[in-house]
Every structure is written in structure tokens, then in C-alpha cells.
Design a protein around this nucleic acid. Structure first.
Lengths: 213, 213
DNA sequence: AATGACCTTGACTGATTGGTCAGGCCTGCT
DNA sequence: AGCAGGCCTGACCAATCAGTCAAGGTCATT
């Protein structure tokens, strides 16, 4: 059973670890930093978690448990453009509310995804492929502009996570106190125009002169 | 003066260091790794460079010397949409040809840009602000759709660099041998639709009933 | 082939780091 | 109050790391 103290200290440690790992990467972070941030001693950290790896693994597990939710929430029965716009908005919201988690993830991928390759190759890939099929169906129905579904998903990831992952750069370039100001409106315009089915010419039935069935 | 051997070994070291730093980050990389990758002994590395910091600094300096070129090359006299499309294509080309440099940069920004804040706050910001003014002028002339220039630039960075920085993830999701296949066509569609001035209604002169000058 | 500058390295050092451990403290229960 | 479990820590260890150094090897020039 888990005591009150355990619950509190595990939470403290994971929060401190998220702060440090997301800012320094796995190898750059030290247990001393995490211990200081958590207000605990280093041996005490190791009383609650077996190792540095274990702390990091627990963080990743927490993250992955909800990482796919926004993508999963795309509803096949909804209106295509509204569904994708809502997905983009959910991802942007995640960047705003959980920038440390986004950077933790980015750090892992940047280093070649050594600890995430299994998750990505199985769970994430399966979900993405499924959503790509759905988008392709929507396109075939003429309800979305014909775009490559994988690249569409990647573009949503890239654009939304950029605001969390490259926050330091954006802050230095924009004078605004809120580096994400205006981002949502911009991305809405961008994806509205990308996905609007209007500019798509209906499938041409070329004026056939040859005898057809 | 620099001898033939110096030139060769410095190049070897910087190439090895780029490989290791871009994959592991500054703190994650070790001189032993770099030495092994370069085929030199660790003391020999330190014969050519004063310290680990010095190697990393030399890499950043090399990178920053050309990092702004694509943005600088936007020509105020050119056709607005063509200029921005060409900029996007140059950035994508950089991600294709120099993914390690892109990841080196991304690593730095992710960690809060400790070694780049000066460059970003001065050189990069000045150039971005200048380009933003140019884009705003183009928009005022009705030659581009009205979009926030800063977000437009950020979106080009996000979308193009994503293919280099998140390469590991993309590889695992796409079966294609070339993770960037189709990226250029997709991004061309995306930015064509975003920037096309057509959907923009001309500035409304509302049917005024009150006396106007 | 001799000279001197340049190049290379094994062996080392001090600092940092992840992790251990024996012992002491606190907390909740009776 | 006393006790048993869970909780906490100073001191320590072995491994790893950036960086040093003295000594020996190599190269171009004469």
C-alpha cells in the first residue's frame, strides 16, 4: 500500500524530475539537481525510485499514457474540417499547458528515440495510420482538400509543438510577454485554407471520345 | 600558419563532434566518444582545441555563419509569394542536407539557448524583424494574404526543421526509406494556399451614409 | 641525416556522478 | 508510552569525465 508521504514525495520527485529532464535532457540532468529541486536528499530520491533511469521511465510512462489522447479523439462521425481543427487546437493547448512534457518528448526524439522507439513503432504508428485512413476517406468524399494525411499530421505536430520546444527562441524574437499570442488565430487560418475543399477541382471526367462502357 | 595536418585533423574533429553533439547534446556528449569517432586520441583532441566547450563553440560559430543565409536571401524586389516559397524550399533543403546542424541547433534551443541567446536576441531578431516589415509591406500592397509575419516565419521554421529534428519519429511511422518524401509537395500546397491573396476581400469601404471628406 | 618544430600518446589527476549502506529518525498504531 | 514499520541521511564507493603532462614520435627543411 502507498502511504500519504509516499504519494506526496513521489509527486514532488516526478515534478522536479520533469523540470530538470525537460530542460537538460536525460544525460544532462543530475540526481543532485533533481533532489535540490524536489527539496529532498539524493539518497531519499533513490529510496522512492530504483535509479535515475526509473525516474525518467516513470515520467515517460505518465506522458505516453495521455500523449495520444488528442489524436484518438478525432471523431470519424464529425465534420472533417472541424475535427482536424479541433485536433490542432487540442495539440496547441497541450503545448501551452504542458510545455515541459513536450520538451521531454522532443529531447527523446532528438536523441534518436532510444527509449520511445517501441511505443512509436507500435502504438503511435498504428493510431497515425488509422487516422490517415480516415482522412483519406474524407478526402475521397470530397469533404477535405486532397493532402497527404501523414504530412498533414506531421505538420500539426510540428507547428504546435514548435511553440513549446522552441519557446526560448520565440521569446527572444518576439517582445510579447506571451510567446504564443496569436498562434491559434494564425494556425486556424493556415489549416482552414489548407483543408478547404473548394479549390479542389472535382475529379475530371475528361471529354471521352472513345467508346466507353 | 596552419599546416596540412592541422587542417585535416581539425576537420575530422569538428565532423566527429557534430555527429556526437547533435545526437547527444552538449552534456550528453563525451570527449572519448568524439575522439573515437574522429579516430584520434583524447589528448590529441585537446591539442587542437582548448576544451570541450571550444569544440562546441567552433561548431556553433560555423553553423551561425550560414544559418541566416536563406532568410537573408529573400529579395524585396522579387515576387512575394515566389520569394517566400523559395525561402521555404531553401530551409527544407537545409534540413535534408544538414540534419545534424539542425539538430545541434534544436538541442541548444531546447535547453534554453544558453549559448545562443545573444545571437538570437541581436542578429536573428534584427533580421526577422526586418523581414517581417517587408512581408507586412507586401501584404499592404495586396500581394500576399494578410497573415502575421512572425508566425509565418515561425511556421516555416517549424515545418522544415521538423523533418530533420524529429527524423527518428518520422522514420518509425512512415515505412518509406526517405522520411522526407513528399514533404516538399505538401509544404508547397500548404503555403500556396496560405499566401494566395485571392481569398482576401479587398479592404471594405463600407457604404458610408455619413458625410466623409 | 640532422635539426627543430610540430604532432601524438600513456598515464595520471581532481571533480562529478549514480548508487550503496548502516544507522538514526519519525509516524501511526496499540 | 512504547513499538514496529516506514522514512531519511551522512558518509562512502566505483565509475566516468574533462583536462594535464612529460616523454617520445614524425615531418619538413636544410
Amino acid at each position: 500500500m502507498t502511504t500519504r508521504i509516499q504519494k506526496r514525495n513521489r509527486r514532488r520527485i516526478l515534478d522536479a524530475a520533469l523540470e530538470v529532464f525537460s530542460a537538460q535532457g536525460f544525460r544532462g540532468a543530475t540526481l543532485d539537481q533533481i533532489a535540490a529541486e524536489a527539496g529532498l536528499s539524493k539518497p531519499n530520491l533513490l529510496y522512492y525510485f530504483d535509479s535515475k533511469e526509473a525516474i525518467h521511465g516513470a515520467l515517460l510512462q505518465d506522458l505516453l499514457a495521455t500523449w495520444l489522447d488528442p489524436l484518438r479523439a478525432i471523431d470519424a462521425r464529425g465534420e472533417p474540417r472541424a475535427e482536424i481543427m479541433a485536433y490542432m487546437r487540442r495539440k496547441l493547448q497541450m503545448s501551452r499547458e504542458y510545455p515541459r512534457e513536450s520538451r521531454l518528448f522532443a529531447n527523446e526524439i532528438l536523441q534518436g528515440a532510444p527509449r520511445l522507439s517501441d511505443f512509436i513503432a507500435t502504438e503511435l504508428k498504428a493510431l497515425v495510420d488509422d487516422r490517415a485512413r480516415l482522412i483519406r476517406r474524407w478526402i475521397a468524399q470530397g469533404r477535405l482538400a486532397p493532402v497527404d494525411p501523414h504530412h498533414l499530421i506531421f505538420s500539426i505536430w510540428a507547428l504546435t509543438q514548435h511553440y513549446a520546444d522552441f519557446d526560448a527562441q520565440i521569446r527572444l524574437i518576439r517582445d510579447s510577454a506571451d510567446p504564443m499570442a496569436g498562434a491559434e488565430a494564425f494556425l486556424e487560418t493556415l489549416f482552414e485554407r489548407l483543408l478547404a475543399p473548394e479549390p479542389v477541382a472535382p475529379p475530371l471526367t475528361p471529354p471521352v471520345s472513345s467508346p466507353a462502357g
